[in-house]
């Protein structure tokens, strides 16, 4: 046995397997599930969650977390709508830049509080979850725009959200590009490996000369930017926005990350795993009505998946530890 990396870890293979089983069962019940439209919708929905989960992975690897994802996404989605209310002909790229920038600013606020004020991310982002949402609602009532509808947005923007390139939804392509980039950085760049080091043992990271504060702030900004991107894409895809977009999304995001094998106490996990986790949770959500379970149960399922994964992680970790001990000795025996 060697410890060299394989393309997919055991955990990731497990998720792929679960996905296959789920898809097979659901398709057996209703063949339309795997139809072109079904797949298209599935991937579109998974794409937005993937963007959020990939950003969250960066944070969780460093032993941080962002509970304000849903609110940040709501804020940036609402921003997209507001931009079109103000100027119907804004180019798509400008909206994208504005959304990403706003997300980054939200991330920077979180990151600054965590890194500089040394308050745990759990507490900081629980606070900003409500602050950002409050701003969102406040903005809505101040401008009197309860809801922005598709007809108020530019056709270009809506086409951007629902378009495809060579049959692959554009949102999915964007998610894949982001996933590949983040995966690359995490695997092969020093800065990426340093994130694992920070999460694995903060004290050792300091001794190794890693500028943890700077890295954590950067990760909050990047992750915020990705959330901002997701918010804009959400607006472009759904075409209807109000101030409550993304409420409660933090549960699905954290669940996807944890299901994907990213250790909640930091130090291990991959963006690929988190993306697979997002795909699995989205598929479950899509499969529930077909299997006769009311969609109301979605939150409960997300929560259960989260708990199940954490228990699984514990068991796996215990076994890994004893196997590592054994292998160390096998060399001598």
């Amino acid at each position: 046995m060697t410890w060299r990396r394989r393309p997919l870890s055991g955990r990731e293979l497990g998720i792929v397997f679960a996905l296959l089983v789920l898809v097979a069962v659901t398709t057996a019940v209703n063949p339309a599930f795997l139809g072109a439209q079904g797949l298209h919708d599935l991937f579109l929905n998974a794409s937005i969650l993937t963007l959020l989960a990939v950003g969250q992975t960066l944070l969780v690897i460093t032993r941080n977390i962002d509970l304000s994802v849903g609110s940040t996404m709501g804020l940036t989605a609402f921003l997209s709508g507001q931009i079109y209310v103000a100027d119907h002909d804004t180019p798509v790229i400008a909206v994208l830049v504005a959304g990403i920038a706003m997300g980054a600013v939200c991330g920077a606020v979180n990151g600054a509080l965590v890194a500089a004020a040394k308050v745990p991310a759990l507490v900081v982002t629980l606070g900003t979850l409500y602050v950002f949402r409050g701003l969102d609602y406040g903005w809505a009532s101040l401008t009197g725009t309860r809801q922005v509808n598709a007809d108020q947005m530019s056709g270009q923007f809506l086409a951007f959200g629902s378009g495809s390139v060579l049959g692959v939804p554009r949102l999915t392509l964007i998610a894949i590009v982001v996933l590949v980039a983040v995966n690359y950085v995490l695997r092969t760049m020093r800065s990426g490996r340093e994130l694992y080091a920070i999460g694995s043992n903060p004290h050792a990271a300091r001794l190794a000369g890693i500028p943890a504060g700077k890295r954590i702030l950067a990760v909050f900004v990047v992750s915020g930017a990705l959330v901002g991107l997701a918010g804009v894409l959400h607006a472009a895809y759904f075409g209807t926005i109000n101030a409550s977009v993304g409420s409660g999304e933090e549960l699905a995001v954290v669940a996807a990350v944890v299901v994907g094998g990213v250790a909640i106490f930091g130090g291990s996990g991959t963006a690929m795993g988190a993306a697979l986790g997002a795909l699995l949770l989205t598929t479950i959500t899509g499969a529930l009505p077909i299997l006769g379970v009311p969609a109301l149960w979605q939150r409960a399922v997300d929560g259960a998946a989260l708990l199940l994964s954490i228990s699984l992680d514990r068991a796996v970790m215990a076994r890994l530890a004893s196997r590592l001990r054994r292998e160390r000795n096998a060399r001598h025996g």
């Binding site: 760049m189 490996r193 080091a197 043992n201």
Partner: peptide, 24 residues
């Protein structure tokens, strides 16, 4: 002081890993 999740080699070289072209 160790990074228990990382490989022995990464523990040794953290922050100073040898690089190839493209800062990989």
């Amino acid at each position: 002081v160790q990074f228990p999740d990382l490989s022995a080699a990464e523990n040794v070289f953290m922050g100073r890993q040898p690089l190839r072209a493209g800062r990989r």
